[in-house]
Design a protein around this nucleic acid. Structure first.
Lengths: 94, 94
DNA sequence: ACGGTATTTAGAAAAATATCAAAATAGCTC
DNA sequence: GAGCTATTTTGATATTTTTCTAAATACCGT
């Protein structure tokens, strides 16, 4: 939650790729895993990190767990980064 | 450079705080260090990570090395995050 | 309830990261 | 050049992260 967790979650390539996959729509853990050369356990771990960072949420349906992107937290990241860009006291240099 | 390095660099709280300090203007390594409870060596390490991620650059002057924010890379981060948000069911490929 | 599939949890090992103290480098000023 | 001050590099250690295998849990259909 502390927002630092979000950057931490985004710092791993696999997790970023998972988010990109999810961009197209919800996927089950298994489907996500099929895109990677990792065991299901590892995928599950990454999913947990993403979940804890509030970047995704899950929806249980039938025998599957579908993961879905949670766009709301991305807004905070945008704000922080944008704040860094805009915050110069005087110099522009662009 | 590979852009994944940028997220990696941003994933550490101390490094993010350094960037926030730099937002107000250039600072020497020593000045930066005075805001933290870490040795100069550790600050130097973080500065190196930031530098390698192109998030800051240095300017040598007199006996000091001044560190300065490099806004250009932040743009890429914004784009990536924003792409994640905007990507509905049929977002553009990449 | 049983057998099967999907996913997670536990425990351990490997790899990467953060940190420090001590030594090295760089660039003053005299 | 000698002596300072600022910063980095080196080498070591502690912590954190990633990953695996094996075992556990969850949920479905019959």
């Amino acid at each position: 939650m502390p927002f630092g967790d979000t950057f931490k979650a985004l710092s791993d390539p696999a997790r970023r790729q998972i988010l990109e996959l999810l961009k197209k729509g919800p996927l089950s853990a298994g489907d996500i895993g099929s895109h990677f050369d990792m065991t299901g356990a590892t995928i599950s771990y990454h999913l947990k990190v993403l979940k804890q960072a509030d970047l995704v949420f899950e929806r249980r349906e039938k025998n599957y767990i579908y993961y879905q992107l949670n766009a709301s937290v991305l807004e905070e990241i945008m704000l922080w980064v944008s704040g860094l860009k805009g915050g110069g006291t005087d110099a522009e240099g662009k």
